[in-house]
Simulated scan of single mutants.
Amino acid sequence: MKKVVLSLFAILAGTSFAMAADGGCDSFKWPVAREQALFAAAPATQSGAALAAGGAADLALEPVDAVSFTVPPERAPAAGTFGATASVTVPPEGELQISLSGEAWIDVIQDGHATKSAAFSGVKTCPGIRKSVRFKLTPGAATIQLSGAKDESIKVAVLAPE
């Protein structure tokens, strides 16, 4: 009887954990299934690389003091954190959704100025995805700046909003 109760407890605990994980990702303001699929196969990429809209990368970060930001990050990064820059071509629609696997600040720079985000969604209970931020931009060149990350790499997806 004791083994049956323990087995039943293990099954229920596993089910509850799976439901909590699904519920965490469902807590985003918009779907993040595309990011989950892209992050699973994101190629390793160095800071300063060009990111393709519609794709993802596992971006290597550098100590924030060593990163050459186009403009200072809007939120000053703490000492001992990591960051990176990447270029992207904004599609004709002018909207980008940038999602990260971990905590970091996102600035998008166009024409020498940081662009304010249009929408933000962040969830701490979704495995593999921490935040997703939308920007309304002008079609053409832009720079993505990441700062304040605690880890030396982060997965980033650059998508058109759904």
Rank of each mutant, 00 (worst) to 15 (best):
L61Q: 01
E62H: 13
P63S: 07
V64C: 07
V64I: 15
D65E: 15
V67S: 02
S68P: 09
S68F: 10
F69E: 02
F69A: 08
V71R: 06
V71N: 10
R75M: 14
A76F: 05
A76M: 10
P77C: 06
A78F: 07
A78N: 09
G80M: 03
T81F: 14
T81Q: 05
T81E: 09
F82A: 03
A84T: 07
A84C: 10
A86S: 11
S87Q: 03
S87T: 14
V88W: 02
T89F: 03
T89Q: 04
V90D: 03
P92Q: 06
E93M: 11
E93W: 05
E93C: 08
E95I: 07
Q97N: 13
I98F: 10
L100W: 03
S101M: 06
S101A: 10
S101C: 02
G102W: 05
W105T: 07
V108L: 07
V108Q: 01
D111R: 14
G112M: 13
H113Q: 15
T115K: 13
T115N: 12
S117Q: 14
A118K: 13
A118G: 07
A119F: 11
A119Q: 13
G122Q: 07
G122S: 13
V123D: 12
K124M: 10
C126G: 06
P127G: 10
G128M: 11
I129Y: 00
R130F: 13
R130W: 04
K131H: 10
R134Y: 11
F135T: 04
F135D: 01
F135C: 07
K136Q: 14
L137C: 09
L137T: 03
P139G: 10
P139T: 14
A142E: 00
